[in-house]
Nucleic acid binder design. Structure first.
Lengths: 138, 138
DNA sequence: GTATATGCAAACCGTTTGCATGGCT
DNA sequence: AGCCATGCAAACGGTTTGCATATAC
């Protein structure tokens, strides 16, 4: 063992040049504390933090998620016009969107093979390719 | 010539079992009157209709777009959390999203080749695969 | 005549912001 | 000390809804 959970999230924050405040540490712990990838909305993370007994305001959850994204620690994903999803995994990878439960999960990236992509128009460059595989109950 | 523009949009409405009201005919004319594909937001279509001198309320634009989508005549596409885009082309095809101008256009479908797709989880079926190619100014 | 579409304005919901307070370095 | 983060509540913008009126069948 070379890193306690606290050190892990503290380093995660530090890698984004973000100050380790109590609220950020708490939210980071909920997001990446166990080293797993997580997909949250602002509301769901807010609920998680209340559930964990943390005192964090909803506005801070929004600000913090935005700060994490801006620092490159997370990505924002849009699948449903009504809310934003945030993903702790930062590489470009496909997602499953479960239309019945409005949940977003990772799809296995190695099973997606794009043989060719439309040519990028002149004067533009590729920013990202979003692939969302929408699922419905069979 | 076998179809005046009016007949064309009237048939388009009829194919979705939608009553040909004045407002729907006007909006349909703006959307598919020239047989081209079009990408609009509720606001942009509302602006178009005002510009064309049509009396249509914003609420009706929303209701009508929803009705068109529900009837399978259009598709809703989500790329930007802040607003919904509507596409008159109903087959599954990729899009360019121009991040600087917040515009959405078709990408050439034949240039996108997906060699393999992640396996659909048990009990689920594929609803749609959204591919959004995000572009930024080079 | 009946069911459905429309218009208006008010409600709605997720998100952002202004400003005073509190915490990190 | 100074700057940045936080909390609260109010503002915001796109979308939806309730209800009275008008239109299609």
């Amino acid at each position: 063992m070379d890193a306690s959970p606290e050190t892990h999230v503290a380093r995660w924050l530090a890698s984004g040049q973000l100050r380790p405040t109590r609220q950020r540490l708490a939210l980071a712990e909920l997001l990446v504390g166990d080293g797993m990838n997580r997909h949250v909305t602002a509301e769901s993370l807010f609920a998680l933090s209340l559930n964990a007994g943390e005192k964090v305001s909803l506005a801070t959850v929004y600000n913090t998620l935005r700060a994490f994204c801006h620092a490159g620690l997370m990505n924002e994903i849009v699948v449903d016009g009504s809310k934003s999803y945030f993903d702790t995994r930062t590489d470009d990878h496909p997602h499953f969107y479960w239309e019945d439960s409005h949940r977003l999960t990772d799809a296995p990236a190695e099973e997606l093979k794009i043989a060719s992509l439309p040519q990028v128009p002149p004067g533009m460059e590729l920013s990202r390719v979003d692939v969302v595989i929408r699922l419905r109950r069979a």
